[in-house]
Simulated scan of single mutants.
Amino acid sequence: MYHHLFLDLDGTLMDFREAERRAFALMAEQLRIPVDDASPEIYARCNLACWKEFEQGLLTIEELSLKRFTLFQAQSGLHFDPRSASAAYEDHLSRQAILYPETLPLLTLLRDEGYRLHLASNGISRVQRGRLEASNLERFFDHIFISTEIGVPKPDSGFFERMLRTTGADKRECVMIGDSLSSDIQGALDVQLDCIWLNTENRETTLEPTYTITSLSELHPLLDSIKL
């Protein structure tokens, strides 16, 4: 039976794709960058590629912040200052707190049932803290772990070891819950921590999560069944 739930933020509790789209549009409007309909998807691919490099320890967070816009500039052919774009984008993103419909009812139910909730997020501290404050999610969590505050990202074992050490929890009573195979699931498996993969897009994997769910609404019934 699990008592400590480590929950990912983006793609699990918050709709990052929509937040990214809105922040990108606001940044482009602010800086008067003449983007077109294809631009958000080009940027999203550049951003994802940079986060993968960050997870692998190939980029610092400062390098990531700039590189995603230099890549976007090269691939889009648009002319702008990548540093200004990065600063404006992160400022707008820090206010994009778009929750999935299931998030608040689920977190309320889990807390009411006595689960200890901890947030485990790869992200830029001021951006994630801003979004948590805007959404009022902080109140649900005993601890908030953000990669730039810890100094290492998921899936680095140091991230997971820090969470276990800080909470003082028995690993057998803990489970990592998230949508990312490369950061949430791989990281948990590397430290022999049980994990629940949120697979909303019917993806395939050679990894072996402890459990798999296809929507956030399946999490509470799954946890209930594990109690039996």
Score class of each variant (00 low, 15 high):
133 E>Q: 08
76 S>T: 04
122 N>Q: 07
19 A>K: 11
10 D>G: 10
48 L>T: 13
122 N>Y: 02
112 D>W: 01
69 F>M: 15
70 T>H: 08
99 L>Q: 00
87 A>H: 10
12 T>R: 10
12 T>M: 14
76 S>V: 11
40 P>C: 11
60 T>W: 02
102 E>M: 00
11 G>H: 11
36 D>T: 07
139 R>A: 10
85 A>D: 02
23 A>C: 13
63 E>I: 01
36 D>S: 08
93 L>S: 05
39 S>G: 14
60 T>C: 04
119 L>N: 00
102 E>L: 01
101 P>Y: 01
114 G>Y: 00
143 H>C: 09
72 F>S: 03
103 T>A: 04
111 R>V: 00
135 S>L: 00
14 M>G: 07
117 L>N: 06
116 R>K: 07
32 R>C: 12
63 E>H: 00
73 Q>C: 12
53 E>C: 14
79 H>C: 14
114 G>L: 07
65 S>Y: 15
84 S>P: 01
49 A>E: 14
81 D>M: 15
142 D>L: 07
81 D>L: 01
77 G>V: 01
95 R>H: 12
128 Q>K: 15
12 T>N: 06
124 I>N: 01
41 E>S: 13
67 K>P: 02
27 M>V: 07
13 L>Q: 11
90 E>M: 08
20 E>K: 12
14 M>T: 10
95 R>M: 04
64 L>N: 06
110 L>C: 08
103 T>R: 00
139 R>H: 10
127 V>R: 01
140 F>Y: 13
141 F>T: 10
117 L>Q: 06
119 L>A: 03
142 D>P: 09
58 L>Y: 03
107 L>T: 00
48 L>F: 10
56 Q>F: 00
99 L>W: 06
15 D>Y: 15
37 D>H: 05
112 D>E: 14
62 E>N: 11
34 P>I: 15
77 G>F: 05
63 E>D: 12
90 E>C: 05
140 F>Q: 04
116 R>H: 09
83 R>I: 04
94 S>Q: 03
36 D>E: 09
120 A>P: 04
86 S>A: 08
45 R>L: 14
144 I>H: 12
